[in-house]
Nucleic acid binder design. Structure first.
Length: 491
RNA sequence: GGCAUCGUGGCCGAGUGGCUAGGCUCAGCUCUGCAAAAGCUGCUACAGCGGUUCGAAUCCGCUCGAUGCCUCCA
């Protein structure tokens, strides 16, 4: 296929830009992973699924992608003041677990959940606690460069000083003067020179369990530090793509830029990508407000919001029907709509195998295929891609009714393109859950009933035929009478 | 209060300065013993008010409304 240009919306420049990797044919991508102090909720999942799509599409285009996604296993203070509590420690206290037990428990949960969504694992999944030494080195370097100061065993980034030579706020569009003017003066005594300064290293209070030795104190690293340490370690001081949730733009990513620039004198990231929020009742899903739904609740239907359970694939399909940069509002109705659409799509896909070919095609598969790529090349526009896949459903139905014709070569191209996008790029799964052996037995039994029903129908014994149909329907087996006989499907 | 984003048909959601996605719902039709399923066809929207323009839902301004960030957060 002729390579086409990929355009990515860069949050830093607020423009769609042509994607040109630093090293031809290879992409370095870093995505901020979860803080593992509780189960991931569906909103968290949306971000990771958005970047799974990016990862998959880049790989599909032939790029060798090194995808780094961290696990934040050292908690961070809930408040910037001295009285804040680390959420991991808090959880450990509440659940009476060792902090690392908390971390382990929810890391496993995260991995299982992502696997259910058929998200590919990243190339490297580093942990914050595994990179304390690297983080300390960065703090030392920043001090050396004159952009950080130590006070009472803690080290802070000097934002004002940094802003003299660099631009603090360029990602989030904030001006330091405005931030200073709008500072809320509620801070208790603090070691910071300015409220805008952020911690690089914090001295641990006596009750703080997670602590490491450093040149300044026994303590723990600041939140923003780990991503700078791990991204530059595995991807270099300047890499291609950095992703994360929109809510991390400020302060987290802004601080990452500051740290990296202070340290390496180079802007760390060429393309900043931010995935938008999943909302529930019009409000952002969030652990702290209780406004969230868990993936497992989706799959079991055990939540009052849901009218029924939804499979991981349908949930993912629902998400991909919106663009990753748009806010998406969750509702059971919207999920049901997606589910029906998804099933129609998969039905058409299955029918591809039974389509007859002719000499010539009356439909233009080549330009349809191009439209699919155009959609994805335009900042990973999955809703347009999916709209195109539904065009293919129309093709299949028209071909089946012999209103259109297709050549063997084009049919192969159609099938291959559908395969590529449905499974490789979108990472959807066929929902044939039962094992093939069981399916065969079930099929044989239902076929027998269909035969009996057809006999009854031939004898105009509609009481019997309807009884068979309705009894099966009540067991979740739907009979479909078509031109070519009767088939069945499971609800 | 500051910064930013958004407001699209019954619902969910793309996109564009003129050719006006897609899914779901709904209606009609085809098929059918009836129904369901499936398929086909139809439903023309862009918060309000001004302005720029030959032409705006798309650009600009204002108003109203919603959301996000400014504190841990995907």
């Amino acid at each position: 296929m002729k390579p086409q240009d990929l355009y990515i919306y860069n949050s830093l420049t607020k423009n769609k830009e042509k994607f040109t990797p630093i090293h031809e044919g290879a992409v370095g991508m870093y995505v901020c992973g979860p803080t593992v102090y509780s189960n991931v909720h569906l909103g968290n999942c949306r971000t990771f699924l958005s970047f799974d799509l990016v990862f998959r599409y880049l790989s599909h285009l032939g790029y060798k992608v090194r995808y780094v996604r961290n696990i934040t296993d050292a908690g961070h203070l809930e408040n910037d003041g001295e009285s804040g509590e680390d959420p991991i420690l808090k959880k450990a206290r509440l659940e009476q677990l060792e902090p690392m037990e908390v971390v382990q428990k929810y890391t496993v949960d995260f991995h299982t959940t992502m696997a259910k969504f058929n998200a590919l694992p990243p190339s490297i999944e580093p942990t914050a606690t595994g990179h304390i030494i690297e983080q300390i080195h960065i703090v030392e370097k920043i001090i050396e460069e004159g952009f950080a100061y130590e006070k009472n065993g803690s080290v802070y980034f000097d934002v004002l000083k940094f802003n003299e030579t660099n631009n603090y706020g360029k990602l989030s569009g904030r001006k330091l003067e405005d931030m200073i003017a709008n500072t809320r003066e509620l801070s208790a005594q603090t070691d910071k020179k300015n409220p805008q300064d952020f911690a690089l290293w914090k001295k641990a209070e006596p009750q703080h369990i997670m602590r490491w030795p450093s040149p300044w104190s026994e303590g723990f690293p600041g939140w923003h530090l780990e991503c700078t340490a791990m991204s530059t370690k595995y991807l270099g001081n300047n890499f291609d793509i950095h992703g994360g949730g929109m809510d991390l733009k400020f302060p987290h990513h802004e601080c990452e830029i500051a740290q990296a620039e202070a340290c390496n004198h180079i802007s760390p990231v060429n393309y900043w990508m931010h995935a938008n929020m999943l909302t529930l009742n019009g409000k952002k899903m969030s652990k702290s407000t209780g406004n969230y739904i868990l993936p497992n609740e989706m799959f079991t239907g055990e939540n009052d919001i849901l009218s029924k359970p939804f499979t991981p694939t349908v949930t993912k399909f629902f998400m991909y029907q919106a663009h990753y940069r748009s806010i998406l509002d969750f509702s059971s109705d919207a999920l049901e709509a997606s589910e029906k659409g998804f099933n129609r799509l998969m039905d058409a896909y299955r029918m591809l195998d039974s389509i007859a070919t002719l000499e010539k095609s009356s439909i233009d598969i080549e330009s349809w295929r191009k439209a699919c790529y155009d959609a994805m090349n335009d900042d990973f526009n999955s809703p347009i891609l999916i709209a195109n896949l539904f065009e293919a459903v129309k093709f299949v139905n028209s071909l089946k009714e012999e209103k259109e014709t297709i050549s063997a070569k084009d049919l192969e191209l159609l099938k291959q393109t559908m395969d590529n996008f449905l499974f490789d790029v979108l990472g959807l799964q066929n929902n044939d859950t039962e094992t093939s052996q069981d399916a065969e037995k079930l099929s044989a039994a239902v076929e027998l009933l269909i035969q009996l029903r057809n006999q009854a129908r031939a004898n105009k014994d509609f009481a019997m035929s309807d009884k068979i149909r309705d009894e099966l329907a009540s067991k979740g087996i739907q009979l479909n009478d078509g031109k070519d006989g009767t088939t069945f499907s499971l609800n």
